[in-house]
């Protein structure tokens, strides 16, 4: 996408520069009309329509994969995240586990994050794991995430939420299936992270 954009941009700049520099000689109105049709139809219609086709052919399936549709087998793991000014309250509904500013998830497993808010609109975002989703008063939004490796991932609030907006980070720790089970049975990290307000 970026490569294609850069090519289009460079070509356009070059053409424009040349058009300003070149000496066309005498051009009749009919010739000008032909130039117009050539440039406008190819550049103004064909180019954007072609590019949009390419983008959509890539974009719609990519978006589709990120939807929280029921997975082919079993059920996605559900974690509830409630945003506050200015910290994240994380709950595992099937276990009695509650964390602040930290999530622990199994790697290579789809996880559904159920997002709510206690006050204003926030936005839950882990840049390396996927897109962001807002927390809206009165609604529950579901974000599908899947970590393809173990390790720590940095996350933060992406929707401006007041004075503490800059200080609302959290950490997502992806563990292997065994480590995750072990952690579930012995969640020593119950108080992991601290409120930052």
């Amino acid at each position: 996408m970026f490569g294609f954009s850069v090519v289009v941009m460079a070509a356009l700049y070059g053409l424009w520069w040349y058009a300003m520099r070149r000496d066309p000689g005498e051009i009749s109105d009919q010739q000008a009309q032909r130039h117009q049709n050539r440039w406008v139809i190819w550049g103004g219609l064909a180019l954007p329509i072609g590019s949009i086709t390419l983008l959509l052919a890539f974009g719609i399936p990519a978006g589709h994969r990120m939807l929280p549709l029921p997975p082919a087998e079993g059920e996605a793991l559900v974690i509830e995240v409630k945003a506050h000014q200015w910290f994240w309250q994380v709950r595992y509904p099937e276990r009695d586990i509650e964390l602040i500013n930290a999530l622990v998830i199994p790697a290579n497993t789809p996880v559904d994050i159920h997002l709510t808010t206690a006050d204003v609109i926030h936005s839950f975002w882990v840049p390396r794991l996927g897109g962001k989703l807002d927390t809206i008063p009165g609604r529950t939004n579901v974000l599908r995430l899947e970590a393809d490796r173990t390790g720590d991932f940095h996350g933060q609030c992406a929707e401006f939420c007041g004075a503490g907006h800059a200080h609302m980070p959290f950490v997502v720790t992806a563990k292997s299936a065994e480590d995750y089970q072990q952690w579930l049975n012995n969640p020593d990290a119950r108080t992991q992270g601290d409120r930052d307000d």
């Binding site: 356009l12 066309p24 051009i27 117009q36 440039w39 406008v40 550049g43 103004g44 954007p48």
Partner: peptide
């Protein structure tokens, strides 16, 4: 992007056929 591109290329064509 379509109407915007039409304008950009119409400007380009004007420059192309003129002596700037």
């Amino acid at each position: 992007a379509v109407p915007t591109a039409i304008q950009v290329f119409a400007w380009l064509a004007t420059l192309w056929t003129g002596r700037v």
